[in-house]
Design a protein around this nucleic acid. Structure first.
Lengths: 115, 115
DNA sequence: TCAGTATATATCGTTATATGACATATAATA
DNA sequence: TATTATATGTCATATAACGATATATACTGA
């Protein structure tokens, strides 16, 4: 059941943002791309190769799941929707705990003699 | 002078901890290994291959520099000491800013409807 | 005395992941 | 009607981590 979510850490930056983008609810690939860009203040611009290979991997790892396909709702190919699994959410939460730990130590060490 | 320190981000977890380990002052490789393990609450255990290839890369990137070699101060081969360069410190500081941004967004998105 | 452990360095082959370049298709807009 | 934004995907390459392996030294306990 709990399936050792620690084994998926650390997440890479693209993977972290993809999962975080899905945290509020389902999205399709292209929407994730734009959301990650906004979410990171314009800093992280996923290429399509990074995005779709990451989505494939996350599906295989069952950190996300495929939902229904939406037909003709606008321009472009049919949208494929993805959502976080419970496991995916737990991994994302564990990652934030990891980040907190790193940040805590960094603050301690960079103050000493720092700016 | 400022040499675009953003280009070195994101740091990988091992690289981040190696630089952070050097933040308070110079250390030799093996000391970094032990320090990183302690610093991360036992979670991050650098293999020697990760450590020494990372040190080589960081030297090449001039994020760290080599100091004097210490002879016969104890068991093992002679110790080689490393220290952060100004550039290395700036990269480490920039990385903590990046981590802060990720954590801020993660907190916002994981609260909504989360545990 | 001598075997084991901790200290200290380093390389090699494999694997995982990101990334730029390329490819395809659709609808809206100028 | 040409361009742009939307939307999907693959391929080759580069980077970095990591387990395995190797070498050398000093201390410690049986």
């Amino acid at each position: 059941m709990s399936a050792d979510h620690l084994a998926y850490l650390p997440l890479t930056e693209p993977t972290f943002y993809i999962l975080l983008s899905l945290a509020p609810g389902k999205k399709h690939g292209y929407a994730i791309m734009k959301d990650v860009r906004a979410l990171s203040g314009g800093r992280v611009r996923l290429s399509t190769s990074t995005l779709y290979t990451a989505l494939g991997r996350l599906l295989e790892q069952e950190l996300i799941e495929r939902l229904s396909e939406e037909q003709g709702g606008g321009p472009g190919l049919p949208r494929k929707f993805y959502a976080l699994t419970d496991m995916g959410r737990r991994v994302l939460e564990a990652e934030t705990v990891r980040l907190q730990g790193m940040l805590r130590e960094a603050r301690l060490r960079l103050r000493e003699g720092g700016t």
